[in-house]
């Protein structure tokens, strides 16, 4: 072999060249695919928001999650979502692109004590108003997020959860119908306190018949993801508490 691959200078040059090559490939790919990925993510957000308020293609299918297809979601979103609000301190403004606000960044800003914006969506279906709140929290391995749709009595009309890297078959099941469907009909209020909804083990209610106990049945083997969901709901509804108080029917 002509090259002496053991020399230090060769090792350094090799490492430098490899980093440059790999870096350029990845950077090129990332910028070339950026528009497509952004578009997909935008559609996904619209699908998720609509899903939470019950605008989906589930029909008689009780087993799987069926979103509005991507080619229709844009127009459905504009027809169902009547108003998008941005809550900044005690100021509430209307913003057509509020759904593109990255909640993760806003919560990070809040943690640092900076000004932050909270998006909220008002949907209307069959003459009924839905207040849809985005949520963001921590699961076992990585981020979890979702949307919860409330009516003016603070009763959950529907939820959608998603996650970045929960364990398949365990924590990942938070996005399954049998888990999400249990939340519908539950109230987030305990008296007048915004208690959220806990994912509870051993609440002796696996079929979720009691709707006013602020609890749904937990997923077996997914304790930490479940606790993450509970914490996420509680924190999110408390962030929006001031606004929700203004629309709540007392």
């Amino acid at each position: 072999m002509a090259i002496n691959t053991d020399k230090n200078s060769y090792t350094v040059i090799f490492a430098a060249v490899m980093v440059v090559i790999v870096g350029s490939i990845l950077a090129f790919l990332a910028s070339a695919l950026r528009p497509n990925i952004a578009e997909n993510e935008r559609f996904e957000k619209q699908q998720n928001i609509l899903y939470a308020m019950g605008v989906n293609e589930n029909g008689d299918d009780t087993g799987s999650v069926n979103f509005i297809p991507t080619d229709k979601v844009e127009s459905e979103f504009t027809s169902y979502i009547k108003e998008q609000l941005v809550i900044e301190g005690d100021k509430t403004t209307s913003d057509k692109e509020a759904y593109l606000i990255d909640l993760k960044k806003q919560l990070a800003a809040k943690k640092k004590g900076e000004a932050y914006k909270l998006p909220l969506f008002i949907g209307e279906k069959d003459n009924k108003k839905f207040y849809i709140i985005p949520m963001y929290g921590k699961g076992l391995w990585d981020a979890i997020w979702g949307f919860v749709a409330l009516d003016d009595t603070m009763t959950v009309q529907g939820v959608y959860f998603d996650h970045k890297g929960e364990t398949p078959g365990l924590g990942a099941n938070i996005k399954m119908r049998y888990f999400m469907d249990d939340f519908a009909g539950e109230t987030i209020l305990d008296g007048t306190r915004y208690a959220g909804i806990s994912v509870a083990k051993g609440n002796n209610d696996p079929l979720n018949k009691t709707k006013d106990d602020n609890e749904v049945d937990a997923l077996a083997g997914a304790t930490i993801t479940g606790n993450g969901v509970s914490a996420m709901i509680k924190e999110s509804v408390n962030l929006y508490k001031d606004y929700l108080e203004t629309i709540r029917v007392k």
């Binding site: 072999m1 691959t5 053991d6 060769y10 090799f14 490492a15």
Partner: peptide
């Protein structure tokens, strides 16, 4: 044949 053995795991 061109990977330096010292940093092969990283490569």
């Amino acid at each position: 044949n061109i990977i330096p053995s010292k940093i092969r795991i990283i490569v």
